[in-house]
């Protein structure tokens, strides 16, 4: 299977009103790499995800996915912070919408891959928060993305569900060899999922640390994850006093 695309992001200027959010911001992601963007709430992490998804275009600069502008690149798999399921569509319909060619069996398979069985005809509101996130993940994976964008996918979920979903994402990304960008404010997420961590802070946003993490995420032991988490936390403390 081919590796996911490389990313080259260069934002000369991005304002929200009179506030300058990004200025002369540069970021590269290697093909097949999982990058974690870590930073405090409101720093602009989700804006970066929206730029990479081709949704946010109101800035000077360019976001290139394998050399193509993000808005013209093949669609990514995007997992939103709030699952963002269509409440008026059943679980199966939510998936079918992004992949109309998928048969009911394929959709059931995609749902089963994230541990959702027998809820195809349920409404999203009938699912728990964790199940909704799984469905959001299944939707993102159903498009066979070469680029997976994860915007705080584990926020406000209980620890057991988070661990389960993290394991799921690590396995799926490793198998598909997709490029992935994860946004989080939790160093634990980065330690479990990422090859590399970029710490963001300040206004305009700047990269305060860029850490390559040892070992492939799918092969990391618990102790290794804890050590990496501690390393990321230390870097955060050093970089953002």
């Amino acid at each position: 299977m081919a590796r996911g695309p490389g990313i080259e992001l260069g934002i000369d200027l991005l304002r929200f009103g009179t506030r300058v959010l990004f200025q002369d911001f540069r970021l590269q992601v290697a093909p097949g790499e999982t990058l974690a963007l870590i930073g405090p709430s409101g720093v602009g992490k989700s804006t970066l995800i929206r730029i990479l998804a081709g949704v946010e275009r109101g800035f000077d600069g360019q976001a290139l996915i394998d050399g193509q502008p993000a808005a013209l690149a093949p669609r990514p798999g995007l997992v939103f912070q709030d699952a963002r399921l269509l409440p008026w569509a059943t679980c199966a319909e939510n998936l079918a919408l992004v992949s109309p060619e998928a048969s009911p069996a394929t959709i059931a398979e995609a749902m089963a891959a994230v541990g959702l069985v027998g809820v195809e005809e349920d409404w999203p509101r009938q699912l728990s928060g964790g199940m909704q996130r799984r469905l959001g993940l299944a939707r993102a994976l159903l498009v066979n993305p070469q680029l997976l964008l994860l915007d705080e996918p584990f926020v406000s979920l209980d620890r057991a569900v988070v661990r389960e979903l993290q394991a799921l994402v690590v396995g799926l990304v490793a198998r598909s060899r997709a490029t992935a960008v994860l946004v989080s404010h939790d160093p634990g997420d980065a330690a479990r999922l990422a090859h590399r961590v970029v710490l963001l802070a300040g206004r305009p946003v700047r990269i305060v640390a860029d850490l390559a993490l040892d070992g492939a995420p799918e092969q990391r032991s618990r102790d290794m994850v804890l050590a990496l988490e501690s390393r990321i936390e230390t870097s955060m403390l050093e970089a953002v006093p």
Binding site: R50, A53, G54, V55, R75, P76, L78, F80, D82, R84, L86, L97, V98, V143
Partner: peptide, 11 residues
Amino acid sequence: AYDEFAAAYRL
């Protein structure tokens, strides 16, 4: 938010 979802998934 749904427009954003639709744009991201190129509906």
